[in-house]
Design a protein around this nucleic acid. Structure first.
Lengths: 263, 263
DNA sequence: AGATGGTAATGACCGAAGTCAATGTTTACA
DNA sequence: TGTAAACATTGACTTCGGTCATTACCATCT
């Protein structure tokens, strides 16, 4: 069917490595987007701090966990980016998500005791590891934190359902437009430019995620450039006409407003 | 892109209707599959009972809630079946799931205060309504119940991701095979035959859900019959060769075993 | 700096599934 | 119980995007 990704590096797991880089949540620039949002008092954030393990950075291609590994922790991306993927019987991989700083990874393993996907670094990446049993303990005393965990999951469900819509109703142009608009708005939330950014994934990974062949991704990119919608040099992307791109993306009006209202 | 469903009946909401049919959770045949699983003591189940509202049955085509409605409750299907769907800008609908007895609907609205999908009865359907604030109160004292809610959500995420895999990697035959195998195994869990059952959705709805045109669904059905994989008369389906169908479905080995081990 | 292997772009061709249209079959409800 | 509307099937034709093949690019790594 679609092409196989064979860039898979030797799967060395890198969880449970406590070391260096002991920035605390309190000082982390991501804390307003991340778990600490749920904790009102400095004291509670310090408690969270104590259970978080900050490992050494993952290098590009290293795995954080593999599909089937025992579920022990959830992870928050601190810097860099991850992808998660499952594989079919025949060994083809299907990327289920790309994860930027402040996003939580691994929660979907909760009810099976095993991660249902593999998580791999797409570039040098730092993560905070949060042992799940400790997180549950902390959540015992913090309804807010409990609620936030549920919220993260319910948001993931909604996003996945939008993805299902994309995969079953949108054509190649609409898929790529949607993808770029979505990335742009995630970058903006994190304080980066939404006009101009660097894609951390290859065309191949993008195609895999969007249900398209690499060649199609390439063709759409060149077409978008001819139409002056974007300007792309390798992985550097500049969005020239966000409104047009948003319109093309179709989907929910909500997302469009989100992108075009601020810049 | 794909065909539009215009069978949408006048959207009359039917939540909050307390009436008749006051079977208690304790006596409900679904309780081992449903929320009460999390509650060990009869007393606690009685508490759950008290917060549940059992409305009058929904008729085919009636809505339980609409996309954008205020999120107030989650619902458990008691009998019949529901579909949930979102719609694109252009008013096309995308079915995001079919829901059988004992399954929970509405949880993905948790973090936005609005349901992100509409839920509609596909046949005469009874549901238990569980006001979310009450459920949260009850969950305060029952870590088990909290855990189960999280589990339901994490299972939904995993299922949605399998659906993404289907939509982006599988061809028409594989999609339909996967769908039938999955339905069969859900029926078996509920004590019904997994060899022979009635589809509650139309070919159109099936196609919509699977990202296929109605015509394709029809053609695959006739092809499967010629190959003696299934026997279909209208909505009545008989699975003649579960192993072959499972093999064709590809996907996770896990699901295949589930279908073929018992019968 | 030069070689090498993964990554990207582009063209030619093909095929699975979509669209359109015509016809047959259920279902619902008056 | 009859009839209209919704649903399902089938065939003919088209199309979008996949596959294959070639060339160009660029990022490491010795």
């Amino acid at each position: 069917m679609t092409s196989k990704l064979n860039l898979r590096q030797t799967p060395v797991r890198q969880a449970n490595v406590r070391q260096c880089t002991n920035v605390s949540c309190k000082d982390c620039s991501l804390s307003p987007l991340c778990l600490p949002t749920a904790l009102r008092f400095e004291e509670d954030i310090i408690n969270l701090d104590h259970i978080i393990k900050r490992g050494r950075p993952l290098k590009k291609g290293e795995h954080l966990f593999l599909e089937g590994d025992a579920f022990t922790s959830v992870f928050a991306v601190r810097s860099g980016s991850l992808k998660t993927y499952t594989s079919t019987n025949e060994g083809e991989e299907q990327i289920t998500g790309f994860h930027l700083p402040s996003e939580l990874v691994g929660l979907s393993g909760m009810d099976t005791d095993h991660y249902p996907v593999s998580a791999q670094a797409m570039e040098t990446t730092m993560v905070c590891e949060i042992p799940f049993d400790k997180l549950e303990e902390l959540a015992l005393e913090h309804p807010q934190l409990r609620r936030q965990l549920m919220c993260v999951m319910s948001k993931e469900i909604r996003d996945d359902q939008q993805m299902m819509l994309l995969l079953s109703k949108k054509n190649a142009d609409e898929r790529i437009a949607t993808f770029l608009v979505n990335l742009a708005s995630r970058f903006r939330r994190r304080g980066f430019s939404s006009q101009s950014f660097r894609l951390s994934m290859s065309r191949n990974e993008m195609g895999n995620y969007l249900g398209l062949a690499v060649e199609t991704v390439s063709r759409v990119f060149t077409r978008f450039q001819k139409q002056d919608l974007i300007h792309a040099v390798g992985k550097e992307i500049e969005i020239l006409d966000p409104q047009a791109l948003s319109r093309m993306a179709g989907g929910k009006a909500r997302d469009q407003i989100e992108l075009t209202s601020v810049h």
